[in-house]
Amino acid sequence: MLAVDNIQVFYGAIQALHGISFEVKEGEIVTLIGANGAGKSTTLRTISGLLRPKSGTVKFDGMDITRVPAHKIVKMGLAHVPEGRKIFPDLTVRENLIMGAYTRTDRTETAVTLEHVFQRFPRLKEREKQFAGTLSGGEQQMLAMGRGLMCKPKLLILDEPSMGLSPILVEDIFKIIKEINQLGTTILLVEQNAFMALQIAHRAYVLETGKVMLAGSAAELREDPKVRSAYLGDVVDIA
């Protein structure tokens, strides 16, 4: 479904990605884990067209999307829920969700999707007419995910959905991600919370300073001593 091949990305003169390659197959949950600044968000932003790689290619659904502008990539069925949620604070919850369906033209179908999103996130239904900026952090995350689902994506990209949420909410969010996947949406998940991510993912890639250091099934990486000490260590400490 998604194939990233040897992408190199620069911010001005600074190189953030030094040739990253990985793939996501249909139906999978794949997670990218790595420390702060490893290049996870940069990778996602390159996939969704917000950044252009200097070299390398991104293929989605068999098509080369490396040079396709972001707004067209959405239309092809790729939704990116960005780091920090990036909801529209001055729009109502409902308007935010409607914006998620911006590329869709069929109103009745869109209304059905909206109902599904409201069923999945009843909180959003309760706060439908409220300005999104007044939502709590957890509600904003639900809104961002709900908005991503509004375009009925084939591939849903999530950048740190658990950031800043309470442990209980984190559990909820991961449960919902798993459910969305089981209903047929492929998921690419970036997480700081490697412990949780490796529990729901099928496969994982470990990024370090703009390179893929390790790759494997989530089960394998959970047992990997390097991963355990570098990314699961502090989680174990807290628990």
Partner: peptide, 24 residues
């Protein structure tokens, strides 16, 4: 209108608007 809503989102955040499929 749709274009009006797109204008409001672009005034809030170009990249977020792009991710909705808006041609900024």
């Amino acid at each position: 209108t749709k274009v009006g809503m797109a204008m409001r989102t672009v005034s809030l955040d170009h990249d977020a608007a792009r991710l909705m499929g808006v041609n900024v």
